[in-house]
């Protein structure tokens, strides 16, 4: 494989391009695990991140689900927070200014109960200084269609993306749920409707119960599974989606280290998001940036873009010569 030489000043180039979105490195926080950024300011220099993806925002403030909302499972955790958030107006007036001051690219994750709500959110955010992109969360139920989750249906996903696309000139990212038969089909629908970028995966639908009280562990009964346990599923989804669409893909799901992040880049993600790992190690995002840089230095990779999607899935038979000669000898 061709190796790009390390750049002139000896420092590897971590910058990535995701269509219209340019980031100084491929590492960002995942929505819902990083608050509005400020929560982590004691632990990381937020300016060192490729971008900060903030907690999902709705038109109106939401109280969220009754507790218990979280539960730990082997190698992971489940949550049913219920999209508790301050609402778009308070986000813009109270939360965004802090991040804007730092000039870190801010990606605003949005969700609505109807297609129209998504469109109104996009319109409200459009033209606001300090916002780098919009990430559409299609993993919430459509109240008008009997609670069916938007992201589980390609047509409904397309409708949401179109509504957002029509109301903003910002780069649009669509965050896909893995709880579908074919994530590629949903990805294609999102791309076709004008999504500039796809991010995947959101949490896996899951459940935990208590054998003594005979009750679900979560008040909501179901929750979303995240953490290292979901990483292999996420990698497979990213692999499939990168081969189904032409637009860039952001990979996430169980990333806790630079190695994990590089795996996603290797299979084809142009950038990654780090979620649950922030809870265990609040400094993990910047540690991953540093880890990727070290890997590139050691491996002599000058430009991270050359590593993205460089996975080799061709079949090699290292002992083929021997087997050939064996066959030849049998034939003679």
């Amino acid at each position: 494989m061709e190796q790009n030489p390390v750049t002139a000043n000896g420092s590897p180039d971590l910058a990535v391009e995701l269509g219209p979105l340019r980031l100084k490195n491929p590492v960002m926080s995942a929505s819902g695990t990083f608050g509005y950024g400020e929560e982590y300011s004691n632990f990381v220099d937020l300016r060192r991140l490729g971008a900060v993806v903030v907690k999902g925002i709705s038109l109106e403030p939401r109280a969220g689900n009754p507790p218990p909302r979280i539960v730990e499972t082997p190698g992971g955790m489940m949550n049913a927070i219920g999209l508790e958030n301050v609402g778009v107006e308070q986000f813009l007036s109270l939360k965004l200014p802090y991040l804007r001051e730092l000039s870190v690219p801010v990606i605003v994750n949005i969700f609505g109960n109807t297609v129209d709500e998504y469109g109104r959110l996009a319109a409200r955010l459009d033209g606001t200084p300090g916002i780098a992109a919009i990430e559409i969360n299609v993993s919430c139920p459509n109240v008008k269609k009997g609670g069916m989750v938007f992201g589980t249906d390609p047509a409904m996903t397309g409708a949401v993306v179109r509504a957002v696309r029509a109301k903003t000139s910002l780069p649009v990212i669509t965050k896909l749920t893995p709880n579908v038969t074919s994530i590629s089909e949903v990805a294609k629908a999102a791309e076709g409707a004008g999504s500039d970028i796809i991010s995947c995966i959101n949490t896996l639908a899951a459940m935990a119960v208590d054998i003594f009280s005979r009750r679900p562990r979560l008040a909501n009964v179901f929750g979303g599974l995240s953490g290292p346990a979901v990483k292999p599923v996420a990698l497979r989804c990213v692999y499939e989606v990168t081969r189904a669409v032409k637009c860039p893909v952001i990979g996430l799901g169980g990333i806790t280290s630079a190695t994990d992040a590089l795996e996603f880049l290797l299979v084809g993600a142009s950038a990654v998001q780090v979620g649950t790992a922030n809870f265990t190690n609040p400094a993990v995002t910047v540690e991953i940036v540093e880890g990727i840089k070290r890997f590139m230095e050691v491996e002599g990779i000058g430009d991270i873009k050359s590593y993205i999607g460089s996975l080799d899935t061709s079949c090699l038979f290292p002992f083929a010569e021997d087997s050939c000669s064996l066959i030849e000898s049998e034939m003679s």
Partner: peptide, 17 residues
């Protein structure tokens, strides 16, 4: 007390009404 994942106000898991 409550189960909590982060302890720093990010996960919003340790809610009480």
């Amino acid at each position: 007390e409550s189960l909590m994942a982060c302890g720093i106000g990010a996960c919003l898991g340790c809610a009480l009404p």
